[in-house]
């Protein structure tokens, strides 16, 4: 096995041998699917003229916090438990350790995201009856693909931040309010929207039909795939920052 493969195999053992992984991912699934069912029900009752695609994603807005928490917890626990010293003694190449950590984080998040997103979408659309979004249409496929990319990239962005800050608690207390407030409130205030709309969580919302270009309150100045492009840049910057921080500092 290649050295990177061995390092990734070690990370895979790490991620599946702590209870927090199953707990956080299960919570993500419960909030995504459960709340999705509830929200779609209220859509069905009162707001049938709304975009049916939005009904399939609304609960993921909340659920993504749990997915992000998983990613931050998996990466941050290396620092909070001191395991980082054992990890780097076992895998002295910091680039290799970092790559292995992020590959495994990314794969687990991507797998969880695709399962929960599709399940949420199916459950939510099933409540909309005749108004449900059609699966075969490109708009639906595009929204699902974009939502998957959004969830995966945003979690990796958070994981990179966790390495830079070397702490799970600090990272969550910085990221959750920013991501939560900006998507629920700040991003919609006229005064700061020109800037806040480019925050990493905001851009993915466009592709999930949670913010629509041109909408007076929730509108953004870019389209769905431009949004994903911006999120890719955020994620790349965060991963690069994490790598530089890990490479330079003493363990």
């Amino acid at each position: 096995m290649s050295a990177l493969g061995a390092a990734a195999a070690a990370e895979w053992v790490k991620v599946r041998t702590v209870r927090s992984t199953a707990v956080m991912l299960a919570a993500f699934a419960v909030v995504g699917v459960g709340l999705g069912w509830v929200v779609a029900g209220s859509f069905a009752a009162s707001e049938r003229e709304q975009d049916p695609l939005a009904a399939g994603f609304f609960s993921l807005l909340l659920g993504q916090m749990l997915l992000i928490t998983f990613a931050v917890q998996f990466v941050g626990s290396e620092f909070s438990t001191g395991t980082i010293r054992v990890s780097l003694a076992a895998v002295p190449s910091r680039g290799r350790f970092y790559a292995a950590k992020m590959i495994v984080t990314g794969l687990v998040v991507a797998a969880a995201a695709v399962v929960v997103e599709v399940a949420t979408f199916v459950v939510a659309q099933s409540r909309l009856g005749a108004d449900a979004a059609r699966f075969g249409e490109w708009e639906t496929i595009e929204a699902l693909l974009g939502g998957w990319a959004h969830l995966t990239l945003l979690s990796l962005f958070a994981a990179g931040v966790a390495v830079m800050l070397r702490s799970m608690v600090v990272t969550l207390s910085v990221l959750l309010p920013v991501l939560f407030l900006s998507s629920q409130g700040l991003g919609n205030l006229d005064a700061i929207r020109p800037v806040a709309q480019y925050l990493p969580d905001q851009v993915g919302m466009v592709v999930m039909h949670l913010t629509v270009p041109g909408d007076p309150q929730f509108g953004r100045d870019y389209g769905p795939w431009e949004g994903i492009g911006i999120l890719v840049l955020w994620t790349a910057a965060s991963l690069l920052g994490g790598w530089v921080a890990l490479r330079r500092r003493d363990a």
Partner: peptide
């Protein structure tokens, strides 16, 4: 290493297993 440098929630066998995997 320092005795505390182990994830408290991980089982003894699993701690050794990830270390073993990291070095093939």
């Amino acid at each position: 290493a320092e005795a505390s440098d182990v994830h408290p929630g991980r089982r003894v066998r699993d701690h050794l297993l990830w270390l073993a995997r990291s070095n093939g």
